[in-house]
């Protein structure tokens, strides 16, 4: 693939990426993968914890309003987004509707299975994109294709090693066990990161779910400084339990640059009708 094609693939399909990024941030792309039989129960338990943390901000279905703030060296921007996800079927449906500001309002992106479509309210047209072209930067944010592949990668392409389990207290003062899990890609796995360091909190009560705290991405397995860091903060007691209401993706290779997502409302397990994930929902 020559450089032109790479560039084409990169920029033309930022939308497709963006959708998946957000889909990852809020709703799972697909149901968590079952672990292969024969793996040790420790590994299975670690995988289960990571899966819980990854799906903490999304139930079977979810609906959330969020503010996305992009801070770059040359501009700063804030979007208001409505994101709806429905993972009750294998297709993994996501609809992102931009609520503001003016120039963006009404733009919508819909992903159903592999089909991604984009709606522009000004031309009232829907453009369908193939999913074969995925690149790296979405809407000028710091979320990349690699991040969006994370969910699949973490459950399928990485091996887990729990490095530490220490007792600590979370932001609300509740005692929790903080797990530091190192993820290394399995041999031949098609992943972008050489090492991922996942930190999650597990509450002390029985049946409490794991919550993500911080995910650091290293380009090479022996790098000591991460390139990117995804941090969860603003732990809040909600109807659905404690949840981190802020996600910040720091671009550590570009000092001062980050993309932050603040949830203002979040609701789970709404019984969406099929209509809400069709092109008709755009209008």
């Amino acid at each position: 693939m020559n450089s032109l094609q790479r560039l084409l693939a990169r920029s033309a399909h930022s939308l497709a990426r963006g959708l998946r990024v957000l889909a990852c941030a809020i709703a799972p792309l697909a149901a968590p993968h079952a672990q292969a039989a024969g793996e040790s129960s420790d590994t299975q338990q670690t995988a289960q914890r990571i899966r819980e943390a990854e799906t903490a901000l999304r139930g079977k279905t979810s609906m959330g309003v969020m503010k996305m703030t992009i801070k770059r060296s040359d501009y700063e921007r804030t979007y208001d987004l409505l994101v709806m996800s429905d993972d009750r079927s294998d297709e993994g449906k996501v609809l992102i509707r931009m609520l503001g500001p003016a120039l963006w309002r009404g733009n919508a992106t819909l992903k159903v299975g592999d089909r991604i479509s984009f709606y522009d309210p000004r031309t009232r047209r829907t453009t369908v994109m193939g999913n074969s072209m995925l690149g790296d930067n979405w809407m000028g944010s710091h979320f990349t294709n690699d991040d969006l592949m994370r969910e699949t990668d973490l459950s399928r392409h990485y091996s887990y090693e729990v490095q530490a389990q220490e007792k600590t207290k979370d932001a609300l003062g509740q005692p929790v066990q903080r797990w530091r899990i190192q993820l290394l890609p399995k041999a031949g796995a098609p992943v972008a990161w050489g090492r991922v360091l996942y930190q999650l909190d597990v509450g002390e009560q029985p049946h409490s779910r794991a919550l993500p705290v911080q995910v650091d991405y290293f380009r090479r397995p022996d790098d000591t400084a991460p390139v990117r860091s995804l941090r969860y903060s603003q732990l809040t007691q909600t109807e659905a339990g404690r949840l981190p209401m802020r996600m910040t993706m720091l671009a550590l290779d570009k000092p001062g640059e980050y993309t932050q997502i603040d949830y203002s409302r979040l609701r789970f397990d709404k019984d969406f009708s099929a209509d809400e994930f069709s092109d008709r929902a755009f209008r």
Partner: peptide
């Protein structure tokens, strides 16, 4: 034809 592009401000635009 319809073109889908990204402006220098990060705005997704589409036009005929």
């Amino acid at each position: 034809v319809q073109v889908l592009y990204e402006t220098s401000q990060g705005l997704q635009g589409s036009m005929a």
